[in-house]
């Protein structure tokens, strides 16, 4: 019996759409390397069709996700943190490979990412009372305002911060009941694609987060112009000209756009992907209805 080293089973990095892990419908892939040139893997190269499938999956999942109790959404986000904690070593390695960071530094970043998930898990049942409230109108009416999810949010994730930055971008969107289509860092997509495995085992319903890998210049325009996308985060668009084009395309259906380079805390991000709904009702028997006529 000849002796040889065991052949390692390598992972095929696929997309995460609608709770499943499909290859690109186009059959395309692209090579991903670490900064020192070491070839890491081939990632699926998402196409227009993949973007559209992801939006459809996000749309289908949105209403049920927003309809869950805030408590349950919080527990599911917390569960995602638990799953990521259990695989912190793997993610630290993938992150170090992707960015060239020192492995210990990479582990620190993974831990920060876990803590951000925990942070947003705690927001799900609080932002409504922090952002909304009762309004003291000048008449006999009960009047209150609540933030509601925008719907489907498309995110171009940061290019140089492929795990923590990506989580920071989509977690506030889904915490508030939106669903997300996230285009991972073009050159460093592997940690994001592995994150799909974490989300898939966190009781997060399929379609709430959809992860695509591919070219920003190819995929983002389809997301920006898609009529069923309600919000667009351009945080990861480095090219100012492209960002302006994407914003103009998003204007066609009056999407809410977050421009690149915008700083802001958690509350700013939670507010970004919510819309206020105000409900009026007469209070008191005399108020009746009608109005001036």
């Amino acid at each position: 019996m000849s002796e040889h080293e065991r052949l390692r089973v390598k992972k095929t990095y696929k997309l995460y759409v609608g709770g499943k892990f499909p290859r690109s419908e186009s059959g395309r892939s692209y090579p991903v390397s670490s900064p020192d040139g070491t070839e890491l893997a081939n990632a699926a190269l998402a196409s227009r069709k993949d973007a559209r499938d992801a939006v459809a999956a996000a749309r289908k999942a949105q209403r049920p996700w927003a309809g869950q109790t805030a408590y349950l959404r919080g527990q599911i986000l917390y569960r995602a943190a638990e799953m990521l904690e259990g695989r912190a070593g793997q993610f630290a390695e993938e992150l170090a490979d992707a960015t060239g960071a020192d492995p210990r530094e990479a582990l620190g970043t993974v831990e920060q990412a876990i803590d951000r998930l925990v942070h947003y898990a705690g927001w799900t049942d609080k932002y409504t009372s922090v952002l909304g409230g009762a309004n003291p109108v000048g008449g006999p009416y009960f009047n209150h305002t609540t933030p509601e999810p925008l719907g489907v949010v498309a995110v171009v994730a940061p290019q140089d911060d492929p795990l923590l930055g990506l989580i920071e971008a989509f977690a506030p969107a889904i915490a508030t009941g939106n669903t997300a289509v996230v285009l991972a860092s073009e050159a460093k997509p592997l940690p994001a694609l592995s994150l799909g495995e974490v989300l898939a085992t966190s009781d997060l319903p399929g379609g709430v987060v959809n992860l695509l890998s591919g070219k920003v210049s190819e995929v983002a325009p389809h997301l920006a112009s898609h009529a069923d996308v309600n919000g667009l985060d351009l945080g990861g668009v480095a090219d100012a000209g492209l960002a302006a084009e994407l914003e103009a395309a998003a204007a066609e259906t009056l999407k809410v756009v977050r421009r690149p380079g915008r700083d802001g805390g958690a509350l700013d991000l939670l507010r970004q992907w919510t819309e206020y709904k105000t409900v009026w009702h007469p209070a008191g028997m005399a108020a009746g209805a009608g109005g001036a006529y």
């Binding site: 309004n135 003291p136 109108v137 000048g138 008449g139 009416y141 009047n143 305002t145 925008l150 309600n230 259906t253 009056l254 809410v256 819309e275 206020y276 709904k277 105000t278 409900v279 009026w280 009702h281 007469p282 108020a287 209805a289 009608g290 109005g291």
Partner: peptide
């Protein structure tokens, strides 16, 4: 963005007004 229940066309400076989708973004009031 605004739902009137058993009333309609009520407006107040203390109550945010504005729409979703192609009715725009941002609120006025409140």
């Amino acid at each position: 963005g605004v739902v009137w229940a058993n009333t309609f066309n009520q407006f107040d400076a203390a109550s945010p007004f504005g729409g979703l989708k192609e009715s725009g973004y941002g609120r006025e009031g409140g």
